[in-house]
Simulated scan of single mutants.
Amino acid sequence: MAGRPRGVVELTDDERACLTRWARRGKSSQALALRSKIVLLCAEGLVNTHVAQRLGVSRDMVGKWRGRFLARRLEGLVDEPRPGAPRRISDDRVDEVIVKTLERQPANQDSHWSTRSMARETGLSQTAVSRIWRAFGLEPHLVDTWKLSADPMFVEKVRDVVGLYLDPPVKAMMLCVDEKSQMQALERTRPMLPMMPTVAARQTHDYVRHGVASLFAAFDPAAGKVIGQLHRRHRHQEFLKFLKVIDANTPAEMDLHLVLDNYATHKTPAVHRWLAAHPRFHLHFTPTSASWLNLVERWFAELTHRKLRRSSHRSLADLETDVQTWIEAWNTDPRPFAWTRTADEILNSLATYCGRINDSGH
């Protein structure tokens, strides 16, 4: 059955060149890039249904931007102005700020743009640059860290660990195990000043160190409870002692599946001998440089944020007592952690990210 007649899209050479440039821009104005791709496919003679299937959008969206282009040509693809005072900064000037922010560095060899340096570069006011950056979510002063695992068994280990989270073995316990090493007993040189209206709590930046302790923890994501043991060192001897604590504090009839990282203390001959004598223990190692797969790291973040970051301890024993008391309080009202992403979703996300950084030109 024939559908409604569609307007035929014919492009001039200048229009095709402009649309192609907009469509290929990988860093900015993704909405405009999608609209440009719609019009380019329409110009190839494709009907709206086929264009929608090619781009993964709705047929109504294709019809909308086909009609807008036929009515107003290139200007029809640009967002219409919002109600209010007339704009004093054109789309070209905004585009210039975005492109320079994303694709160029300052001429003075600074590592990133500031609102002042961008204002000098473009001739706009500092306030205008700040507004443009906020509108497009650009924060040149911030940088996040990341690391890709080079583990040759990365895919297999991700599937193994995530499979445990999403489909735990029957009649068995799963525990996420790790050490939080180098917990410092820091004593602030002055007492903390309490919070007041409009004034945050304040503590001195200087402190006295009284030593470090290591917390060995086994977190049960299903129940939310933690088995913890504190030591002054974190060698394989201490890890063996902790395995014995886990053994003594879990039902003897249940198998134990432990999610661990690749720290050397987890793989010594003494540890292997002990595990061979206790066959109910099954170890599952996360990939190297992928500690985010171990849910105990998320629990360590709770410990740091809710206890350690704002505490002051006069001795190492004071720190150990404080941490042990906090763990006991946590276990009286435990909070289970639920893993939601499948292994395929994680691997597809990483594959997409690797494709982006490989195509970035750096």
Rank of each mutant, 00 (worst) to 15 (best):
R209E: 14
T342L: 00
S117Y: 03
L293G: 05
P287E: 10
H141I: 05
R82Q: 14
L164V: 01
A201H: 11
Q53V: 02
T145M: 03
W22L: 05
K147D: 06
A107N: 01
P287T: 04
E44W: 01
V78Y: 03
L186W: 10
C176A: 13
T204E: 14
G63A: 04
R298L: 03
L316E: 05
D13Q: 13
A248K: 02
P152W: 12
A222D: 12
G76P: 04
G123Y: 07
V271D: 10
R233F: 14
H362D: 13
V99A: 13
D13W: 05
V199C: 14
L77M: 01
S28V: 14
F219V: 08
P168T: 11
R35G: 08
H305T: 12
A252S: 12
L303T: 04
G45P: 04
V99K: 03
R134T: 13
V143D: 11
F219I: 08
A33H: 09
D144S: 09
D333N: 13
A270L: 12
R209K: 14
H313M: 11
Q109E: 14
F154T: 02
T49W: 06
M153E: 15
H236K: 11
G7N: 08
H278K: 12
A301L: 00
H282N: 14
T145K: 08
L124Y: 08
R54Y: 01
L215R: 00
R310D: 15
R72E: 15
V212T: 15
K37V: 02
A217V: 06
N262I: 13
L347W: 01
G163V: 03
F216V: 01
A172N: 06
R35Q: 07
T145Y: 11
R82S: 10
C42M: 07
R4G: 05
P86D: 11
S114H: 08
W274H: 10
K225Y: 09
T304K: 08
N108C: 10
K267N: 11
S360V: 03
T321S: 12
E96V: 05
W326C: 04
R21L: 14
A128C: 07
P5V: 08
V177L: 10
W113I: 03
S349H: 08
T204H: 15
R235W: 04
R159N: 12
T115L: 00
T189F: 00
I98M: 12
P168Y: 01
G123S: 06
D14T: 11
R131M: 09
T352M: 06
T321E: 11
R66K: 01
P83E: 14
K100Y: 08
L148V: 11
G163E: 07
P251L: 07
W133I: 10
S130M: 03
T265M: 07
N294T: 04
R202N: 12
W299L: 08
R306Q: 14
E320V: 12
D13H: 10
A172H: 09
L138I: 15
T288F: 07
E328R: 15
R88D: 10
G26H: 15
L240I: 04
F242T: 00
T340L: 03
G123V: 08
S58F: 02
V271G: 05
A23K: 01
T286W: 10
C354T: 07
E80V: 08
Q203W: 01
A217Q: 01
